[in-house]
Design a protein around this nucleic acid. Structure first.
Lengths: 206, 206, 206, 206
DNA sequence: CATGAATGAGCATTCATTCAT
DNA sequence: TATGAATGAATGCTCATTCAT
């Protein structure tokens, strides 16, 4: 299944919003603004203006501003979990599965959903405790995919460090690329960056 | 020189505030609150209450709330730069120098200055452009220490990946420990965590 | 055209606010309060209370408190310029034109717009430099009406002193009436006061 | 008696402060600042800085900020009353007495005490009701000098208008010179300006 | 007398949210 | 659904005044 097919099926199941619909466009703009200015510094007027409506009208789509933040996070995790699962299915060896996960996470961070992923990291504290719990449940599914692969790798003897620790190191390292990696400029492609990560871990896919 | 001696000499040079003085105590509490609630959600009334003064009195020490954020960042970088330089001087081999830097950064992130380090990462956008420029100058000095060591390591053939990319990966990975590593609980000590990082890079100090 | 017709046409052209509308009522109350207590001592809460809304709601009509001050001044000058032009058109001789101007200015100072005129004089320094420049442009039009008449009077030989100086003396003398003249009490009507001014200048209209 | 002799005798009687003493210098600076920025916009820190002390130290000289405003006004009226009396004594004819008063008031407004005189007019509302009453008593003495002369002039037939009204017109006209008259620039001297005022009233001193 | 840190009430302004139209 | 005026609590900041040193 292509990335687009995955997106379409999630839309069909009503798990993520159609990016062309009113709700989807708002979430896209919200991710952009939350990342650019931060959740607190983004006003509902900013959000409304970004999609060409009045601020009062926002509240027909979302009950509160925080609900918008939660929706950005939830839909992003849902989409990326599905993309990761597809990446795993497409790979044969364990090393290739790890490479697939790294590649998919780098793409989620630096591609279309990059802004939403950055929001997930940097605006976490702006989410109420109740919403955090909801989002964490979804995150657990996502994280389980990583741990399975890393544990298999350790069993194979290809990984020396603790899988749990490695995953957390990778989370930090990969998230951080958003602050410096620019897919447009410079010679480094996403595949090249993936190679660097594997090399750093002495895990060249060969 | 011990860590405490380094701190004392920075205080003497007026480069960081005495943690026992009024200003220093405010910065400590500010770092804690900014990390806990975020800069925007922390009010000047919160800050004042945390050190037992009235909100108006804050403005005898700092002209604006943002100046407090800047001071938290500036003093933290100054202190950690000095600690890194000491760690480098204490190490002999290049591998040990890298280990020293990793160890020092993990300590800065998970020890006394941990809250301030987290603020440096997570509240960066709340700093005005002018203040960002000032802080970036100090960051450059700090980062240069890392790049020198990583480049030396690459010359030695002990490092395959690009030093610049590796430093950025490490920045993300080490910063992220603040979200999951707990020096008190669990069996993992800071030295153990340092070992894990070195192992992940296939760089055991031996 | 009656005074009321002039006002109506300015409202229609959107040059002054309808005194019965929300904005107009606020400006009327603002003029009263600014004159009574001064601009600085008048809080936005005072202004809001005077028209029966909450202080936050003020900022739907005006972006800043200063914008209210500017609007009071601008609308007053616009109205009085129009009234002066009408007074000039209604008079035949040059002496009668001067009498018309004096009468109109006394009326603007001691009548309906009296409070706003006093604000124009006494709160001038509270206006930002940028707003002052805007208001001064309008004032120039207004002042040109006076100078034309005074210069014509000098050409006729009916005025000995310098028109420019005379206008400034009159500005001060007439503005000052607001501090002592009370149209209700005492026998002095506005026409009587106008006579006194003309008499003082040895310019009886006969 | 020269102007300076009058000042010296007032200082000796403790009715005005020595301009070279600490209190006198503060009042001079206060008059300047109050006129420049307005009473409300002038902070006690501004006042203290202007005379090179700390803001807390001001309160050893004056109990409140308002007391400074009152002192500026009171001392100015005292001085100018004395100067007016001297001007009256020096003149022979009633016309010359009026000329003396006009000349003296123009000098008070545009000379050394100009700033304080402007404060008297433009900051009146910032004075508490209690202080206003005190200052008004002094003003009455001052105003009585004018009314005597104007009434004598009317008895002589040299003045047609009501003395009370004329005095008020003159108050406004002369006060207003502070906004436009510049003794340094332009050809108009204070004597020339006095002539203009007398001419405007058809009261040339001859 | 002078200092300067501290006070605490007050200020203009912001902003998520509501609701009559 | 959409509007936009209104709300009202909250915010960062100011400033005259106090007082221990």
């Amino acid at each position: 299944m292509s990335q687009n097919q995955i997106l379409q099926s999630l839309i069909a199941e009503n798990l993520v919003s159609d990016p062309n619909g009113a709700r989807g466009r708002l979430l896209t703009e919200a991710a952009r603004l939350f990342r650019e200015k931060g959740y607190e510094r983004t006003t509902v007027r900013d959000l409304a203006a970004a999609v060409g409506i009045q601020s009062g009208s926002l509240f027909h789509h979302f009950r509160t501003k925080e609900e918008i933040l939660k929706a950005v996070m939830v839909e992003t995790i849902r989409l990326n979990t599905a993309l990761m699962q597809a990446a795993l299915e497409a790979a044969d060896s364990i090393r290739d599965k790890l490479r697939g996960l790294v590649r998919a996470e780098l793409e989620s961070i630096n591609g279309q959903t990059g802004e939403a992923m950055a929001v997930l990291v940097f605006e976490w504290r702006s989410l109420s405790a109740a919403s955090q719990a909801e989002v964490l449940e979804l995150r657990d599914i996502y994280e389980a995919l990583w741990l399975e692969v890393l544990e298999a790798l350790k069993s194979e003897g290809a990984l020396e460090a603790d899988p749990f620790v490695v995953r957390r190191m990778l989370t930090g390292a990969l998230s951080w690329t958003v602050t410096w990696y620019n897919p447009g400029r410079g010679g480094l492609t996403l595949d090249g960056l993936t190679d660097q990560v594997m090399a750093m871990m002495a895990l060249k896919s060969g």
